[in-house]
Amino acid sequence: MSTHSHTEERHITGNKTYIIVWAALMVMTVVTVYVSYINFGMLNIVIALVVASVKASIVALYFMHLKFEDSITWVFALFPLSLLALLIGMTITDTFTRTIVP
């Protein structure tokens, strides 16, 4: 059985890229911690979640090589997120539009 075919086409990310990604993650961590000391009201949670999502995305794209995966991997990486959004979204819709608070 031949094994050479898949190792050749496989993408190997260089350490340089990894270190740049890591540095970016660290910078964003510092930013979130710093921002948390300033009061923006409701914006705080938005900023925190946006930064977290950017961090999560680059972890997935580079550390987890999602960038180099086929479309079916993308589908199964993203579809659960949309289901999670659905679960949160509809449960909140129910909880906060009830006329009688139990």
């Binding site: 819709t93 129910d94 906060f96 539009t97 006329t99």
Partner: peptide, 22 residues
Amino acid sequence: SFLVWAHHMFTSGISDLAATIF
């Protein structure tokens, strides 16, 4: 099937809006 779960809960005290959507 992911979009319809609360139709089991119409009399459980969920909101009218949610019940209508579901």
